[in-house]
Design a binder for these strands. Structure first.
Length: 698
DNA sequence: TTTTGAAGTCTCTCC
DNA sequence: GACTTCAAAA
């Protein structure tokens, strides 16, 4: 069943060498071959649940045992968490040396290298990292300064500006073309975008700021244009291993090419069918073209799935087989039996929620599955609102992954802005944010204050000499006193942690402002307590600020305190955040057209394909129990939506349905076999076809 | 100039 | 239906 013609150049043409005896019990033939691969580029095309992490960990351990110094191995992963998990496992296999492997995300590694080598290329080593929101704010400042705020002409909002900028940097596609392809209504504004981005770039440079995209871009640039530094950097590592390669973008591919100038020991692992970060500029073409990029690549495919039962794999495989571009792998397992995945038709959202809660309690109480082994997967963060309320009412503990981030909350960013001003007095974004918090200071006064700082060359106490308008005098004095106090802190390295102490002092001023601004202050104050607790875990303020920008604590579970294993809780996760994870039982809810796939992706073939891969990722998270749920009558009308919603996701087509146990939820909560054919959105979208007639360029 | 209230815009995924 | 932007009042 694995004889599908593939786009990968080859199954290994020659039979892999027999694996070393030590691996035989643990790994299958393909995995062993990957682990024991010698030097030179290696592409491991690993389907979902095929032991990809395990293989990578064993390879890591193998390299160390072969005598490669652990600290000369670089492991690049998608999340910080993934890196740590792998290093821990490698440590168990290879001993304490495993811990010395350098592991982290592309961004985290870029950060580390830039702090070390950036200065030699004119980058001040104490730069501040802008997260996406900060980057938007700074673009907004640029925009206002350049006068685009006043024009009556419609101008894109800051989030759009940031998106275009980021897309440009990460994909190398010219701004003009991005606008033409993705935002045609702004196409004629290309020169304005260019002007704005030039100013933004200048502003970042003079304010000592570095955004996410810069981290990667500077790394790539050092490798490509600064031979001496490039030699130092590439000389650090003998082997590079990359996880989730399907989610890298062109810029990251450039970095890898640069890192492999002096050797070609690059191992990448990925699954083109799980490429779900196209919106961030990732392209699964990276993985498909890897063998061309690195001639002599050995390709090893992992297709034996150790995670799911065959009925679950059958459904997932069939969903994926409908992809416009045929993918390569067909997963199989030796795990016989298992129930067919359920397809549950619910009346509406409440009914959907009731099914999920009833069924998960059944699994938990009757079958003894721990709550943490059960997950509810959603396409987007807000889709679990109703479920969360119900779970809270029924006192069922849950943890939510993904979605709105703690650190994106305005009040958290406010407090951090104070610390950032201290850390980098040139941080214009944070100054602006802090100033606007003060009563009596608005946009104009804030700008005037920043201009005065600029004029004083950002000297530390320049702000105390700023003359505020009378109504802001008290606030100004309070802020000056606070900053003074924080600068004259007894001594760095207090046991409690500098950042935590700083936050406590900032809150003496800020908590009142917060109470004034928000109706319900308590939960926000609790957030700040948590922030303080997190901060206590870092040695100093600078480390804390960089760390939280690069590895935000994923939702509340990292913050809740206490071991994850202790408190058993259901997991609610976006599909994106669920990547790489697995559970005994998985519910995929909101499997309705317009929701999953999301409405705005339906008109665009590439985006629709990404939604399909997303569905594939969701389905393949399940080990034994899988239920796909869709509400029939949710919100029939949605502004701007001219296709029918409220119908079963188009990915669950008749063939897929035939492989599932179809049940309908009746009003009393009982399940009956689904009788009638569930209506499915036609693949023909009449309005979209008509629209294309007038918009297509050919 | 700041603040407040009303109209208007677009709805996500994440380092 | 939330968040941003615009317009008027303090």
């Amino acid at each position: 069943m694995s004889d599908e013609p593939g786009i990968y150049p080859a199954r290994p043409r020659r039979a892999p060498a027999p694996p070393p005896a030590v691996f035989v019990h643990d790994l299958n033939a393909q995995q062993s071959a990957a682990v024991a691969h010698g030097d030179g580029p290696l592409l491991i095309a690993a389907g979902a649940g095929t032991g990809k992490t395990r293989t990578l960990v064993h390879r890591l351990a193998h390299l160390i045992r072969q005598g490669v110094p652990a600290d000369r191995v670089l492991l690049l992963t998608f999340t910080r968490r993934a890196a740590q998990e792998m290093l821990m496992r490698a440590e168990r296999l290879a001993g304490a040396d495993g811990r010395r492997v350098h592991g982290g995300t592309f961004h985290g590694t870029a950060h580390r290298l830039l702090r070390r080598f950036g200065a030699a290329a004119g980058l001040s080593p104490d730069f501040t990292i802008l997260d996406q929101g900060d980057s938007e704010d700074l673009l907004q400042l640029s925009r206002a300064q350049l006068g685009y705020a006043d024009t009556k002409r419609r101008f894109p909002k800051k989030a759009t500006l940031q998106w275009v900028y980021s897309r440009h940097v990460n994909t190398d596609v010219p701004v003009e073309q991005i606008l033409r392809d993705e935002l045609p209504r702004f196409a004629e504004l290309a020169p304005d975008f260019q002007r704005l981005f030039a100013d933004y770039t200048e502003r970042k440079a003079s304010r000592n700021l570095v955004d996410y995209d810069d981290l990667l871009l500077f790394w790539a640039t050092l490798l490509e244009s600064a031979p001496v530094i490039a030699d130092r950097i590439t000389g650090l590592y003998d082997h590079i291993l990359v996880d989730e390669y399907q989610d890298t973008n062109l810029l990251q591919a450039r970095i890898l090419r640069g890192m492999c100038r002096s050797h070609r020991n690059l191992t990448v692992v990925g699954d083109d069918a799980q490429s779900i970060y196209g919106f961030r500029g990732a392209s699964f073409r990276n993985i498909i073209e890897f063998p061309q990029d690195f001639p002599g690549t050995r390709v090893i495919a992992l297709e034996q799935n150790y995670r799911s039962t065959q009925p679950i794999l059958d459904v997932a495989n069939l969903v994926m087989s409908r992809a416009a571009q045929r993918f390569t792998k067909v997963l199989w397992t030796t795990r016989e039996g298992g129930e067919r995945p359920w397809l549950v038709t619910a009346e509406d959202e409440q009914s959907q929620t009731r099914f999920v809660v009833d069924r998960l309690l059944e699994l938990h109480e009757d079958e003894g599955i721990p709550l943490r082994e059960i997950a509810v997967l959603i396409r987007a963060g807000y889709m679990s609102a109703d479920l969360e309320i119900e779970l809270t009412n029924r006192r069922i503990p849950f943890r939510k992954w993904g979605g709105l981030k703690f650190l994106e909350a305005a009040h958290v960013k406010d407090v951090l802005a104070f610390l950032r001003v201290l850390e980098n007095p040139r941080d214009e974004v944070s100054w602006y944010r802090v100033l606007l918090l003060l009563p009596g200071i608005g946009d104009v006064t804030a700008r005037a204050a920043i201009d005065s700082l600029l004029a004083a060359a950002w000297e530390a106490d320049a702000f105390s000499r700023f003359e505020p308008p009378p109504r802001a005098r008290a606030a100004h004095r309070a802020l000056v006193a606070l900053l003074d106090e924080l600068r004259r802190r007894p001594s760095a390295g207090v046991a409690a942690g500098q950042a935590s102490t700083d936050i406590a002092r900032v809150r003496a001023l800020y908590d009142d402002i917060l109470r004034e601004r928000y109706d319900r202050a308590e939960p926000r104050l609790a957030d700040l307590d948590q922030l303080q607790t997190i901060a206590a875990g870092y040695p100093d303020r600078g480390t804390f600020l960089s760390a939280i920008a690069l590895e935000p604590p994923s939702a509340t579970q990292d913050l809740a305190g206490g071991g994850d294993e202790e408190n058993d809780a259901l997991v609610i996760s976006t599909v994106h955040s669920a990547k790489g994870k697995e559970w005994d039982a998985v519910f995929v809810i909101w499997a309705a057209d317009g929701w999953f796939p999301m409405a705005r992706s339906i008109d665009d073939d590439e985006e629709l394909e990404e939604e399909r891969r997303l569905m594939y990722v969701a389905l393949t998270r399940a080990r034994r129990h899988l239920a796909v749920v869709h509400p029939l009558h949710a919100y029939a009308t949605r502004r701007g939506a001219d296709y029918s919603l409220d119908q079963l996701s188009r990915f669950i087509d008749p063939g897929v349905r035939a492989l599932m146990e179809r049940v309908t939820l009746s009003a009393d909560g009982s399940l009956t076999p689904t009788e009638e054919i569930v209506p499915v959105t036609s693949t023909v979208d009449l309005r979209a076809m008509l629209r294309r007639r007038f918009t297509s360029s050919d």
